[in-house]
Amino acid sequence: MMKTLSLSVAVALAGTTLTAAAQTPPAPPPPAAKAQATPYVMAAGKSDLYEIESSRIAMQKSRTPAVRNFADMLIKHHQKTTAATMVAARRAGMKPTPPTLGPGAAASIAELRAAGAADFDRVYLAQQLPAHQAALELHQSYGARGDQAALRTSAKAAVPIVRSHLTAAERLQANPRNGM
């Protein structure tokens, strides 16, 4: 009986350790997205959709006001950047489709849904940092050398927004209670 209990506790702790250690950031955008319109629009849309969906989960699961405020801001801002990208894509003669999550982002979302209350904020913020770093690099790169003027303008407009999100995520990770 004692051996079974010890083994059960060890297995439970091992599962907790793996879950606590896991932090699956969404995959970075493909290199072509940094200069070509179609991959850029797709990558920007996927990035925004991940931010919106992950933040909706944060609004449900986080009990930390500063994290919830951050999530609310991300939802609002990324809805706007998605709309601006779609308008710019249409100006460039494209017919953009609504964004979908890629496999990496879907795995990140699944990880957030599975995260326990004690780990949620840490996992959410750990995903936000690399996601925003990748998004910042995407918008900066496309804004500098993208092949469509309307999309370059939209990408350049997204840079300060994403940069402010990255700064806020870094502050929150350092102090989740009042990092913003």
Rank of each mutant, 00 (worst) to 15 (best):
M1L: 12
M1I: 15
M1E: 13
M1T: 09
T4R: 15
L5K: 13
L5P: 12
L7V: 09
L7S: 10
S8C: 12
A12E: 06
A12Q: 04
A12P: 04
L13A: 10
A14D: 06
G15K: 01
A20F: 15
A20R: 09
A21V: 10
T24V: 10
A27M: 15
A27P: 08
P29T: 09
P30N: 12
P31T: 03
A32I: 08
K34E: 10
A35G: 08
Q36M: 11
A37H: 00
T38D: 14
P39L: 03
P39W: 05
P39Y: 04
Y40R: 03
V41I: 05
M42H: 08
A44C: 00
A44T: 00
K46S: 12
S47P: 01
S47T: 14
S47R: 00
E51V: 01
I52D: 07
E53Y: 05
S55M: 01
I57C: 03
A58C: 07
A58K: 05
M59R: 11
K61D: 13
K61C: 11
S62E: 02
S62L: 03
S62Y: 04
R63A: 15
N69H: 11
K76I: 13
H77I: 13
H78E: 03
H78T: 01
Q79V: 02
A83R: 11
T85G: 03
T85S: 00
V87D: 10
V87L: 09
A88Q: 07
A89F: 01
A89H: 02
R91S: 14
R91N: 11
M94D: 06
K95A: 12
P96T: 03
P96C: 04
P98S: 09
P99M: 09
T100I: 06
T100C: 07
L101D: 02
L101Y: 04
G102Y: 10
P103M: 10
G104I: 03
G104Q: 07
A105L: 07
A106Y: 12
A106H: 08
A107R: 12
A107N: 06
S108M: 05
E111N: 08
L112R: 02
L112G: 06
L112A: 02
A114Q: 14
A114F: 15
A115E: 14
A115R: 07
G116T: 13
G116Q: 14
G116R: 11
G116C: 08
A117E: 15
A118W: 11
D119M: 10
F120Q: 02
F120L: 06
D121E: 04
D121I: 02
R122G: 05
Y124H: 01
Y124M: 04
Q127T: 01
Q128H: 03
Q128S: 04
Q128P: 00
A131G: 01
H132I: 03
Q133P: 07
E137R: 04
E137Q: 11
L138A: 05
H139L: 05
Q140M: 10
S141K: 04
Y142H: 06
Y142C: 00
Y142V: 02
A144L: 07
R145F: 08
R145Y: 06
R145G: 15
G146D: 04
D147M: 07
A150W: 07
A150L: 08
R152G: 06
T153R: 13
A155L: 05
V159S: 11
L166G: 03
L166V: 10
T167N: 05
T167I: 03
A168H: 06
A169M: 02
E170D: 09
E170Y: 13
R171Y: 15
L172S: 07
P176V: 00
G179D: 10
M180L: 08
M180H: 12
M180D: 12
